[in-house]
Design a protein around this nucleic acid. Structure first.
Lengths: 192, 192, 192, 192
DNA sequence: GATGAATGAGGATTCATTCAT
DNA sequence: CATGAATGAATCCTCATTCAT
């Protein structure tokens, strides 16, 4: 098996372990065992538990960003692009439950690693902020930033809620979220 | 020092440790040391690391709920009550940074303890859901539930953002969040 | 409650704890708690866990020896005295299960305390040895000593067996043991 | 050093520690140190202190049973077989003082582990009981069982006595014990 | 005399990490 | 390149024992 493939396999297994137990409780023994690789192998590939974790975060984050980026074409109308991106976001969450869980959970906890994860989140927030500002309304930079964070937080929470409600159709959730985002933008602009 | 006071002191110290390192990485040795108490003392008071953690969550959660409950009088108008509660929420977050961090962080991670924390969050969500439903608009139970989660998630994210922006006046954030909530309720009701 | 009575109560409770968990696993906390006495009390009375244990052994051993001594009158025939003593022995074992268990169990294990317990046992063995020698047969001192140990060991084992066989009448066991002892004495004397 | 050899070495060292201090007081630190192995090594080999202990009991017990079994050939006369087995038993006790001490001591104490040891002892008792019953005398099942326990107890006690009397030749003790067993069988059969 | 409160010391166990092969 | 084997360092937790009151 080529090295690249093995690396991906290890990352998959590691992601599952992190999602199941959290960073600290996941053990390198378990990960190596489930990947059918010796532990020194894992260390030779990733250096340390922390680096392995970061590599997983990085890969998952990049996948998410890529999908969001390519979800909408430049020629689409703003509303269509928003809807497309939200749809893509929920699709990603559904397809990568482990990755999503790790990304989201660790965004909030374990201080030492938070910075790396925060970076990913901040890129999403930045995109949302741009979107808010490009709506053409009169919104201060500060308000745009704050509202962008609120929008992202709402999306995370909504996604988690939906993940545990298999019966709710994705389209419905997309609808809600689209409307929420639109309303949020208007709310951010409304004068005193 | 009376026992009750020492218990509170230990909880404070424990909260700081949990906030700094997360549940797993925080060590009982560190907590006992910083509380200027021997480890067996901590065990005699709280039984185990897990119980100590739960005691902290419980205390912090109760404080938050109490404040939210008493923030608004029954005679206030709905909008006033909403604003009062949000103000209180942000005040709590500001005053109890450690507690908030632990509550919020562990809501998302560390599987074994998540249940206890999830319980607190779900009570807040339930209150928000009732609020959504009592707005008098035509909203399905499902939509109300989903939107309540989105609102809570937005609030959490907004609070965290604000915590790192000392210069932003609380009133401003309250304003945004109030508007966001109102908009969210309307959005949940809007037909296709 | 007078001190003497409290001491006895503590000893009783301690004996039960030692019988249930063994010396090491029995905890002073448990003993003090069950005797409804504070721990410093126990220490003031007995000094240390080891001393408490020895005090229990001592009391129980003395009780056993007393009963064996007074079981038979000097005017009885040798066989009657043997039977009376064995009967008394089994009665003691039945009435003082905890004490017997501790006495017997610790006779074999826990090195540091073995000496004290061994002393009690050796007094019983000595009595048996005298009995063997007084049988009037030609038996070397060594053989008498060895056989006395064998006889005592047989009795211990038989008593334990009987303790778990509630349906077996004591008289029957006494009979067996009397015969065994007699046979053993004869066996010890038999030439090559 | 191959793994198998190291396992045996650890077992030897552990046996010595258990014999010296008893199960509870023996520490894994001490055992690992004396075996010149790190503690995690011991855990990787045996899993836990309890498992280490059981492994030792198991090994020692099997050795004893094996030796008793092969001590006598099927073609030997009953008396010769009895003598051969007793000789073997004493030889084992002499050669494996630690093992014998642990086996014998823990047969009587420490509740949680007693079962495993009791099993070994009960197999020996069963063999003795069969021997008693095959003597051709009229003996009730109950009497045979009780007497078998008495015989085993006598042997244990006699062996311990002998262990501290280096000057007493083994042959002599064997002789006594053989006669005692014979006498015991007859005693069990004798009518009222 | 009596105790609630406190602790020093140590025990079992686990884990990330690294050589020797 | 790959690994089996090994460990230093922590971690949670318990317990016999003792003051200050």
């Amino acid at each position: 098996m080529p090295r690249a493939a093995r690396e991906q396999l290890i990352l998959d297994v590691a992601g599952a372990a992190f999602a199941r137990h959290g960073y600290h409780a996941a053990s390198m023994d378990e990960i190596a065992g489930q990947a059918d690789v010796s532990k020194p192998m894992v260390y030779s590939y990733f250096g340390s538990k922390e680096h392995l974790y970061l590599a997983y975060i990085e890969r998952t984050g990049r996948q998410l960003l890529d999908r969001l980026e390519h979800a909408a074409g430049a020629e689409d109308l703003p509303l269509e692009r928003l809807r497309a991106r939200i749809t893509e976001f929920l699709a990603f969450v559904e397809e990568h439950r482990d990755g999503w869980r790790v990304l989201f959970a660790e965004a909030a906890s374990s201080r030492p690693l938070a910075d790396e994860v925060a970076d990913l989140r901040s890129r999403i927030v930045a995109a949302v902020r741009r979107m808010v500002q490009e709506a053409g309304l009169e919104i201060s930079a500060e308000a745009a930033d704050g509202m962008a964070h609120a929008i992202v937080g709402a999306g995370e929470s909504l996604a988690n809620w939906w993940l545990e409600r298999a019966s709710v159709p994705r389209e419905l959730v997309v609808d809600w979220y689209v409307k929420l985002v639109q309303a949020a933008v208007v709310a951010a602009a409304a004068g005193p």
